[in-house]
Simulated scan of single mutants.
Amino acid sequence: MLDDLKPHIADLRKRLINSVIALVIGFFVCFFFYEPILEWMMVPVEAVLPPNSQMVAVEVQETFFTALKVAFFSGFILTLPIIFWQVWLFLAPGLYDHEKKLVFPFVFFGTLMFLIGGAFAYYVVIPYGFEFLINFGSAVVTVLPSIGKYVGFFTKLLFGFGVAFELPVITFFLAKIGLVTDRMLKDYFKYAVVIIFIVASLLTPPDVLTQFLMAGPLIILYIVSIYIAKVFNPETDLDEDDDEDEEDDEDEDNEKK
C-alpha cells in the first residue's frame, strides 16, 4: 500500500515545492512595492476614521512585520494562477482525458472567483464593518487603529471571501467528475445555510449587517452551485431508482435479522 502511495506523495511534494517557489518570488516582488499596496489596503478604514485620527504602530517592529504580511498576501494573490495550476497537475493523473482539458477553465475561473470575492470584501464588507466598529463609542474614546492588527484582519477577510467564492468552481469540477449532483446539494441546503452563517460570524466583525453581507452572497452562490450541478451532473431517475432499491434491500435485511 505504501508503495502505491509513494508516487502520489512525490508528486504532491513536487507541486508544493513549485507553489512555494512561485510564492517566494511573488513575495520578494511585492515587498519592493509594499508601500503603495499598504496604502491601497488602508483606503477603506481611512474613509471612516474620525477627524484627526490615523493609523498607528503600537510596537517598534510592527511596521516591518506589517510590510511582510502585505508582501506575503500580495505575493499569494499574484501567484494564484500558478498555485491553481499546480493543484490541477496534482489532480490530473486521476482524471479522464476529456476532464484534463478543463485545466484552463479551472485556473481562469478559480482565480477570477477569488478576485471577485476579495473585491466584494474590499468594496462592500470592510467599509460597512469598520464604520460600525470605529463609530461605536467614538463619542467617548478616540480610535487609533493598529496598522498590524488592521492588516491581519483585512487579509483574513479578503482570503475568507476569496475562498468562499470558489464554491461554484469547486461544484463545477465535482459535478464534471460525477461526485455531486443537484439533488445532493438540495438535500444538504439547510445544513449549508447553518454552516454559512457560522463561518460568516467567525470571519466578519461582530455586527449583524456585516455577517449578512457575507452570508447572503454565499447562500446565493450555493443556489448557483445547485444549478451548475444540475447542468453538468443532474440527478437522473435511474439514480433515484438505485437509491430506492438500496433502501428496499436494507429494509429486507433488517426484517431478516
Rank of each mutant, 00 (worst) to 15 (best):
L12C: 10
K14W: 11
R15S: 09
L16C: 07
N18L: 12
I21P: 15
I25Q: 03
F27P: 07
F27W: 03
C30I: 04
F32V: 12
P36I: 00
M42K: 00
V48A: 01
V48E: 03
M55E: 01
M55V: 12
V56I: 04
V56K: 09
V60I: 10
V60K: 06
Q61F: 13
E62Y: 06
A67D: 08
L68V: 08
F72I: 13
F73Q: 01
F73L: 02
I77C: 07
I83L: 10
H98E: 14
E99H: 10
V103A: 11
F104M: 13
F106Q: 06
F108D: 10
F109E: 06
L112Y: 10
A121P: 06
F132I: 00
F132G: 00
L133H: 04
I134W: 02
I134Q: 00
A139I: 10
G148S: 07
K149P: 12
G152V: 04
G152I: 00
F153R: 08
L157N: 03
G162D: 08
V163N: 13
E166F: 03
V169K: 05
V169N: 14
I170C: 13
T171H: 08
L174K: 01
K176W: 00
I177R: 15
G178T: 09
V180E: 02
V180W: 05
T181F: 06
D182K: 08
D182I: 08
R183Q: 09
R183F: 06
R183H: 03
L185D: 03
K186D: 07
K186F: 03
A192L: 02
V194T: 07
I195W: 11
I198N: 04
I198R: 00
S201N: 10
L202F: 11
P206N: 08
L213W: 02
L213P: 00
I220T: 04
V224T: 13
S225F: 02
Y227N: 15
I228T: 10
A229I: 13
V231Y: 05
P234H: 14
D237G: 15
D243Q: 15
E244Q: 07
N254A: 14
E255C: 13
E255K: 11
